[in-house]
């Protein structure tokens, strides 16, 4: 009788031994990101002290070269040339405005310039200067200013 008890004990132990190697990586976080509104997802996933992704880092280099003269290093629309412009360049740290703006609108503005979205023609078009993926990098980086990087 004692032997059967031993077996009864052994079986779950063996099973436990097999399962212990599993890595308890949480899948719940990944599950929560489904849904269509990408801006909302980015806001959710990236708290203050946001670490730049690869695309955003690529964008930051291009932004510093092409955009910062007017839009400012911090994206506040206060580059050294901003004060010669009327209307003033867009402030990218304005989170209320940026959340309402879709990725497509940002990419269109960079590609076709202000005139292509019925805004000021003072914003030039870069669609023939940098390639499409570079424009997407810049668009991704422009979104990071709302975190106050």
């Amino acid at each position: 009788m004692t032997r059967t008890r031993v077996i009864a004990l052994l079986v779950p132990l063996l099973l436990a031994g097999c399962t212990a190697k599993r890595n308890p990586a949480s899948l719940s976080a990944a599950d929560s990101t489904r849904g269509g509104d990408s801006a909302a997802i980015v806001l959710q996933a990236a708290p203050v002290g946001h670490i730049l992704t690869y695309e955003e880092r690529q964008g930051s280099v291009l932004y510093a070269k092409y955009c910062a003269v007017c839009h400012g290093k911090e994206g506040k629309g206060d580059g050294f040339n901003a004060f010669n412009l009327d209307p003033r360049p867009r402030d990218f740290s304005d989170s209320a405005y940026m959340v309402a703006l879709s990725d497509g609108q940002i990419i269109q503005t960079i590609t076709g310039g202000g005139r292509s979205v019925n805004k000021s023609p003072l914003m030039p078009s870069y669609g023939w200067t940098i390639d499409r993926s570079q424009i997407q990098y810049v668009a991704a980086y422009v979104r990071t200013f709302v975190y106050g990087n």
């Binding site: 007017c70 040339n81 412009l85 202000g114 000021s120 003072l122 030039p124």
Partner: peptide, 8 residues
């Protein structure tokens, strides 16, 4: 008017 060259 079109290309806004005066911005730079």
């Amino acid at each position: 008017e079109r290309y806004g060259c005066q911005s730079c």
